[in-house]
Write a protein that binds this DNA or RNA. Structure first.
Lengths: 109, 109
DNA sequence: ATAAAGTGAAACCATTTGGTTTTATATTTC
DNA sequence: GAAATATAAAACCAAATGGTTTCACTTTAT
């Protein structure tokens, strides 16, 4: 696993294991060991996935005693969202759904 | 390039060349040769990228004489959009961005 | 009917990817 | 301080990825 060069968001979410890790981290801080129990692979492998997610800016971590706690950093997903929005016009139902959402929630304009 | 196993949308868009191909195909039909001139790689390489995009359902093609014309099929991107929406609550400013989008482009309601 | 244009398919190659095992280091706990 | 816990780091490996070159096959144009 190449950890030397930068990974971007698109690459980071290409792997199903990494996508699942992101969901696990949604909301709660977890240590590597806690994440690993959910996967049929070694802690080392999970650690490498976390490194790739870190490089993409999707997770951050802090040391707490002998543990290292990871948290989700969802902001970089905005790049994905922006990319996706370019294609909005080529498939239906997104605009209408969001229009509804905006009209119901955002009144400041 | 493994073209035997299925590729999903997440994998398909992980490569920048493939993302650019998708943008090129947004709106217009193109033959492989027309796509290739935009990239510093062989027609064969582009052809393989198109195969991966096909497997992900993101492009389709039709034969026209000795040419093969490719078109965008954006629908599978909805899977990505759905995945992304799960994380909406973890980053801000999506609503505002789309509000702007809707107000500028969609007037049908 | 040949030549040219457009593509497909096969064989090959270097690098990256996703995993492993082994060894070492830091922090608790008893 | 010794054992247990949590992680890091390094070496290794098979398969996938992204590319190439070469050759064959259709379709069109002259």
């Amino acid at each position: 696993m190449n950890t030397a060069k930068k990974h971007d968001v698109f690459q980071a979410i290409a792997d199903p294991t990494r996508r699942e890790i992101l969901k696990m981290l949604a909301g709660k801080e977890l240590a590597i060991t806690e994440i690993t129990v959910r996967f049929p692979m070694s802690r080392t492998a999970v650690s490498k996935h976390l490194l790739i997610l870190s490089e993409a800016g999707l997770v951050k971590n802090r040391k707490s005693g002998r543990e290292k706690l990871y948290t989700l950093q969802a902001e970089p997903l905005s790049e994905l969202d922006q990319w996706l929005s370019y294609f909005d016009q080529f498939w239906q139902n997104k605009i209408s759904v969001l229009k509804h959402l905006v009209e119901n929630e955002g009144q400041n304009s």
